[in-house]
């Protein structure tokens, strides 16, 4: 564990807490994409199947369970919890996440899994687990898209929603620094280029948002996106 990864994880946790608080306190889900959070839930469920098979550390296991439970409760609140669910604007949350996110990521994951020969020599179970892990890496990189597109529609960005996206983006940017650090200071550290590629892609998707977020913070005014 290095300082970059710890800060990245904390940024991730913080973004989830900000969103949970916003939903609980404001009892309002407007401007929040249910589809993004369903994608994140799928990411966590497919990546953390190793909860049952490999023990890394208490920290890892607790965080994994916390991510799954908190994201599940966000999905639950937006979908089913009254009165929050009545404020969710389904008509605006239109990104076709099955066709343009889940489907392509499943195809890409299958292709890279077999081309890389990653699972050869392992049991079928491990192969499926590895395949799901690769799928989750691809899917995480673009899971924020429905939320960013929804934001473009509203233009005026609420403070808490803006903070949520800012911390969510910072998390993966800090992970990139963590990978560089580990490459230099951890002998025997094994590279997963798919994860690196997706981590950079994920961070780039936030770049535009970061720019306008910083500008609005500097001006100290309201945060709105350009047309």
């Amino acid at each position: 564990m290095n300082v970059f990864r710890l800060c990245g994880d904390m940024s991730h946790v913080f973004s989830i807490v900000v969103l949970l608080l916003r939903l609980r306190v404001a009892k309002n889900a407007s401007g929040i994409s249910l589809r993004t959070h369903e994608l994140f839930l799928l990411v966590f469920l497919t990546r953390y199947t190793d909860l049952f098979t490999t023990y890394y550390s208490l920290y890892n296991s607790c965080m994994k369970i916390a991510y799954i439970l908190s994201t599940a409760s966000i999905v639950y609140m937006i979908r089913l919890s009254d009165p929050i669910c009545t404020t969710y604007d389904k008509a605006q949350d239109t990104f076709r996440h099955w066709a343009f996110a889940v489907g392509p990521c499943a195809v890409l994951a299958t292709l890279t899994h077999f081309i890389s020969g990653e699972g050869s020599g392992y049991s079928l179970f491990v192969n499926i687990q590895e395949l799901l892990w690769t799928f989750s890496i691809y899917l995480e990189s673009i899971a924020i898209l429905p939320q960013l597109i929804l934001l473009q529609r509203y233009r005026e960005v609420e403070n808490l929603t803006g903070n949520y996206i800012f911390f969510m983006g910072s998390y993966r940017a800090l992970y990139i620094l963590n990978w560089i650090y580990r490459t230099y200071y951890e002998p025997g550290y094994r590279h997963h280029y798919v994860a690196y590629f997706c981590g950079v892609l994920q961070t780039l998707l936030y770049a535009d948002f970061f720019y306008y977020y910083m500008q609005s913070k500097r001006r100290g005014g309201r945060f709105s996106l350009p047309t």
Binding site: D50, T53, T54, Y67, Q129, W133, E186, Y196
Partner: peptide, 10 residues
């Protein structure tokens, strides 16, 4: 399954 890679991260 390899430890010491991005797989021991979150």
């Amino acid at each position: 399954v390899d430890a010491k890679s991005t797989k021991d991260e979150l």
